[in-house]
Design a protein around this nucleic acid. Structure first.
Lengths: 167, 167
DNA sequence: AATATATCCTAGTGAGCAGGTCGGATTAAG
DNA sequence: CTTAATCCGACCTGCTCACTAGGATATATT
């Protein structure tokens, strides 16, 4: 499992998509409502939204008190999925040796340097995919687009709906 | 850290690259030699090579006894990095809901289905990158090619050489 | 002013897994 | 028959994930 999106990333993206869908509402959206709509724990969402609020620049803005809640800090078109995922999951790095950034690292070992070339390519592929999509793209994505998702692979189909229980 | 290559994947790929470099040798290459060349634990490499040997089809072939060791089961050009990584790290899936394969899954929740579209795109980007490279590409990759790796991002540069200690 | 409804903050915790180590059994070459 | 290698399974240890708990603070409504 080379690609590991933790529940932070999974739930956090869902939270942001929810906020994007309610972006043009007159009132902020409360975590209680989001937790109910997405069937997630309120207390846990509070931790995630903290990351989104304290990021630089912030991705959401809060209003405290009754009838408070959260809004996107910018319109959905201007928030890339790359920003969101980096805030929630940390930098896109397959390993400590391949953090995003330059790779002019001298390595004493024979083959490990050559493999870095591989991991850098994978990292850049992920980064480019995430950076080329915005929240608006996801909200606009309706069912037929989801069907069009490329499926070059044979079915494995041990897919479940409930998260987190099994790995 | 959305991309998590464990040491299984990291060391295992290095092992395969080492075998590729010695593919045209007359004698099989022992794990002891590889462990020394790559500064890895022999006992741990034994676990990894087991995966590569027992995969279907096998990626390496062993010769037991003195002067024994391992060879690639096929020439380096015919072994893709995607095959290797899948054997070592398991299927390329960002989460349990997005295993490689078709994504015609009905999901009761509102936004989680839309986010699946995102994860599927990321997954396919990784899969395509890995499947389009072979062991021969990596062995042939010399230093100037490594320099050419795309670097669209600002340096973060808390890069270390020693693996596994910190996260 | 009182209450209800929110956000905010910190700590703790239980299970599971990554990342190995260890000891020994088997096989074959010299 | 010794040496060098592959094989095999059990065990262990620390870390991180995925929460939960309990409260403090802020504000709109009544």
């Amino acid at each position: 499992m080379i690609l590991r999106v933790s529940t932070k990333g999974e739930y956090g993206v869902r939270l942001m998509v929810d906020l994007a869908r309610h972006y043009y509402s007159s009132r902020p959206r409360s975590l209680t409502d989001i937790a109910q709509a997405e069937q997630l724990s309120l207390a846990y969402l509070e931790q995630l939204v903290k990351l989104l609020r304290e990021s630089e620049p912030p991705l959401v803005i809060s209003t405290r008190g009754a009838h408070g809640g959260y809004r996107l800090s910018r319109p959905p078109e201007e928030i890339t999925m790359g920003e969101i995922v980096r805030v929630l999951e940390g930098p896109i790095a397959p390993m400590i040796c391949a953090t995003e950034g330059e790779m002019t690292q001298i390595c004493s070992l024979l083959d490990s340097c050559k493999t870095k070339f591989l991991w850098a390519r994978v990292r850049d592929a992920v980064a480019q995919t995430l950076d080329s999509m915005t929240l608006a793209d996801l909200v606009g994505a309706s069912e037929q687009e989801t069907q069009n998702a490329p499926t070059h692979f044979i079915s494995i189909s041990d897919i479940r709906v409930a998260p987190s229980s099994a790995l």
